[in-house]
Amino acid sequence: TGIVNVSSSLNVRSSASTSSKVIGSLSGNTKVTIVGEEGAFYKIEYKGSHGYVAAEYI
């Protein structure tokens, strides 16, 4: 489990890349469940599926 540490919002992406499609966003202080790690990204549970967020902001 981690907490989103941004002042505005954090993009949730379809894969572990900044060039991948943005599938949603999370606001600051949102609690997320981390299920894996790929490079600089965490794989998280997101809306019944999975998404990827930049690990530096969690």
Rank of each mutant, 00 (worst) to 15 (best):
T1L: 11
T1H: 13
T1P: 08
T1D: 08
T1A: 10
T1F: 15
G2R: 08
G2M: 08
G2H: 07
G2V: 08
G2Q: 05
G2E: 04
G2F: 09
I3Y: 15
I3W: 15
I3L: 09
I3S: 06
I3C: 13
I3H: 08
V4S: 05
V4Y: 04
V4E: 03
V4C: 07
V4L: 06
V4I: 08
N5M: 13
N5Q: 08
N5L: 11
N5F: 08
N5D: 06
N5I: 13
N5S: 09
V6R: 10
V6C: 15
V6T: 13
S7L: 12
S7K: 13
S7H: 12
S7A: 12
S7V: 11
S8W: 15
S8R: 13
S8Q: 11
S8I: 12
S8M: 12
S8F: 14
S8G: 15
S9D: 08
S9R: 14
S9Q: 11
S9I: 11
S9V: 11
S9E: 10
L10R: 03
L10A: 10
N11W: 13
N11Y: 13
N11K: 14
N11D: 15
V12P: 01
V12H: 01
V12D: 01
R13H: 15
R13P: 00
R13Q: 10
S14P: 04
S14E: 15
S14Y: 11
S14T: 08
S14H: 10
S15A: 13
S15K: 11
S15H: 14
A16Y: 05
A16N: 04
A16I: 05
A16D: 02
A16E: 02
A16P: 14
S17G: 07
S17Y: 07
T18G: 11
T18Y: 15
T18K: 13
T18I: 13
T18C: 15
S19M: 12
S19K: 12
S19T: 13
S19P: 05
S19F: 10
S19Y: 10
S19L: 12
S20C: 05
S20R: 05
K21P: 14
K21I: 10
K21C: 11
K21N: 10
V22E: 03
V22P: 04
V22F: 06
V22K: 06
I23L: 09
I23G: 01
I23E: 01
I23C: 05
I23K: 03
I23P: 01
I23S: 01
I23F: 03
I23A: 02
I23H: 01
G24N: 01
G24C: 07
G24K: 02
G24F: 07
G24H: 02
S25F: 13
S25T: 15
S25Q: 14
S25L: 13
L26S: 01
L26R: 01
L26V: 09
L26P: 00
L26E: 00
S27Q: 13
S27N: 11
S27G: 10
G28F: 14
G28R: 13
G28L: 11
N29I: 06
T30M: 10
T30E: 11
T30P: 03
T30C: 12
K31F: 12
K31E: 10
K31H: 10
V32L: 05
V32R: 00
V32N: 00
V32Y: 04
V32H: 01
T33S: 08
T33M: 10
T33Y: 11
I34Y: 02
I34Q: 00
I34W: 04
I34L: 05
V35I: 14
V35M: 09
V35K: 05
V35N: 03
V35R: 04
V35T: 07
G36A: 10
E37G: 07
E37T: 14
E37Q: 15
E38Y: 11
E38Q: 08
E38I: 09
E38D: 09
E38F: 11
G39N: 08
G39A: 06
G39W: 04
G39P: 02
G39Q: 05
G39S: 05
A40W: 07
A40C: 13
A40K: 11
A40V: 09
A40D: 12
A40R: 10
F41K: 01
F41W: 14
F41A: 02
F41L: 03
F41S: 03
F41G: 00
Y42D: 00
Y42T: 03
Y42E: 00
K43C: 09
K43Y: 06
K43E: 05
K43I: 13
K43T: 03
K43A: 05
K43R: 09
K43M: 09
I44Y: 01
I44A: 00
I44D: 00
I44Q: 00
I44R: 00
E45C: 14
E45H: 08
E45I: 14
E45V: 13
E45T: 08
E45N: 08
E45Q: 09
Y46K: 00
Y46G: 00
Y46I: 03
Y46V: 02
K47Y: 09
K47L: 12
K47E: 12
K47Q: 12
G48S: 07
G48E: 07
G48T: 06
G48L: 06
G48V: 03
S49I: 12
S49F: 10
S49A: 13
H50F: 15
H50V: 14
H50M: 09
H50P: 04
H50R: 04
H50S: 07
G51E: 01
G51R: 02
G51W: 03
G51Q: 02
G51A: 10
G51M: 03
Y52G: 00
Y52I: 00
Y52Q: 00
V53R: 00
V53P: 00
A54E: 15
A54Q: 15
A54L: 15
A54F: 14
A54M: 14
A54V: 13
A54R: 13
A55L: 08
A55D: 01
A55V: 11
A55Y: 06
A55F: 07
A55T: 10
A55Q: 14
A55C: 11
A55P: 02
A55W: 06
E56G: 07
E56H: 10
E56L: 11
E56W: 08
E56T: 08
E56I: 14
Y57M: 08
Y57C: 15
Y57E: 07
Y57H: 10
Y57I: 03
Y57L: 07
Y57F: 13
I58S: 02
I58M: 04
I58V: 10
